[in-house]
Amino acid sequence: METPQQIRDRIVGAVAGLQVECLPNGAPAGVPSLLVGRSCFREVAIFLRDDPQLRLDYCSNVTGVDWPERTEKFKVRRQVGEVEKDVEESRVIPGCLEVVYHLYSMSLKHGPLVIRVRTGDRSADVSVPSLTPVWRACELQEREVFDLFGVHFDGHPDLRRILMWDGFVDHPMRRDYVEPDDYDYEPTPHDHVLDRALARAKPGEAGCGSGAR
């Protein structure tokens, strides 16, 4: 298979106006990944699936990564008064949620190609295009990213919580998630039965009320 950089050049050459960037990977023998702009994400995915040289027909892994806002410190050489000095400066890198897809080809038996897409602001602008219409393999995994990270996938046919229960409000895989103090309460389909039992129980009776717990 071509290198990610060659693929990137070919995508940009084939269709004008696509934003694709090649990101380095620090691991030994690690392959670089392609960061694709949100607006053209599905277009790029369809290109990768249908291109005769690539034919990436199998989307293996879909996952989210949370990057909270952070300040990066770095040193610059600056003229301070008369002398030139190393000055420490900092810049703020805005936070985002990232969705990573690992693509392989079952027909040509090559891969992986890693593509990633980033949302805007982590609290308000969390939608990216869904790739479930391109590869059905994304269906349950995108639901999981929605559930645990809170990324909204536009165009997903059935975007519901998958591992947490429906009434749950937060997204536990985010870095700033705070666990509740009390795990006792979890809604069940039998809640109304419990309520009735509690209402009927006399205080202090075994099995119901606060005394028994």
Binding site: N25, G26, A27, P28, G30, S33, S60, N61, H102, P112
Partner: peptide, 10 residues
């Protein structure tokens, strides 16, 4: 402590 980077093993 591995160096910064990413990997996918399957």
């Amino acid at each position: 402590r591995p160096k910064a980077g990413e990997s996918y093993g399957r």
